[in-house]
């Protein structure tokens, strides 16, 4: 699914978070959205997912303003797993809540795809590690066979080894299933590894964009300082 966003604005009370955002998410490609904490990256993907409304501008999904959001899925920053449900019930949530019982095989297959051992099938989220939670959340996001997946800082809170494993996994899954992916991240290494195109947001506008493989060659001063962690003089 291709998504075009033009002149998008969003404010909360008097705080203008997104001033003028225009970007394109290409079909079957991995788009990375980079930016400092609080720059409105999460707000942007929640607007695209129609979880938030926006003030002005427009969004076209394959050229249309309306979309069936059942085709979308999201991996939340901290997993957002339901604490009172077992891992299997979390993954197959939509079937579980509708009293369908024949989800076991599909769940096990997804657990295998994301590298989870079947021994945690009946465990609760509080009984597994942070890295496992991310994998469970990814399996849940994939359960409904989405055409587009939003990944909100998928490597947050993970050590470098687990971050790398999650990046590999995301890359494998989106390539294998031919899913369009939109990833929010601070992590340049992850962006280079998993992305095709990037957009850098600062102060509510797109400051830089380009090919992920050429991120380190950017000429944009703001983005350069974001990459190196140095303040602009």
């Amino acid at each position: 699914m291709k998504i075009e966003i033009k002149n998008l604005k969003k404010s909360f009370n008097e705080n203008l978070v997104l001033k003028n955002i225009s970007l394109t998410i290409e079909k079957n490609k991995s788009t990375i959205i980079l930016g400092q904490s609080g720059c409105g990256k999460s707000v942007l993907i929640k607007i695209i997912y129609q979880l938030f409304s926006f003030d002005s501008g427009f969004i076209l999904y394959d050229g249309k303003s309306e979309v069936d959001i059942d085709k979308f899925s999201m991996l939340f920053q901290y997993g957002a797993l339901f604490d009172s449900l077992k891992i299997s019930e979390n993954i197959a949530f939509t079937d579980f809540i509708n009293n369908k019982t024949n989800y076991e095989r599909k769940v096990l297959s997804l657990m295998n795809d994301v590298g989870l051992d079947k021994s945690i099938f009946n465990r609760f989220p509080s009984e597994i590690s942070g890295g496992m939670k991310k994998r469970v959340a990814l399996a849940r996001a994939l359960y409904k066979n989405p055409k587009l997946i939003f990944l909100d800082e998928p490597t947050t809170g993970l050590d470098p080894i687990n971050s790398d494993k999650i990046n590999e996994l995301i890359l494998k899954v989106i390539r294998k299933r031919k899913i369009t992916a939109v990833t929010i991240t601070h992590d340049i290494k992850s962006a280079i590894k998993t992305g095709d195109h990037y957009y850098f947001i600062d102060k509510g506008i797109i400051q830089d964009k380009g090919d992920c493989k050429k991120i380190l060659k950017t000429k944009n001063k703001l983005f350069k300082s974001f990459i190196t962690g140095a303040s602009i003089k």
Binding site: K46, L51, I69, M74, Q77, A80, F82
Partner: peptide, 18 residues
């Protein structure tokens, strides 16, 4: 706070019903 309400929406579940 932990975005589980947003997760419900993304899983096509109305939080009033659930």
């Amino acid at each position: 706070v932990t975005e589980q309400i947003d997760a419900l929406k993304t899983l096509n579940t109305n939080y009033y019903n659930y």
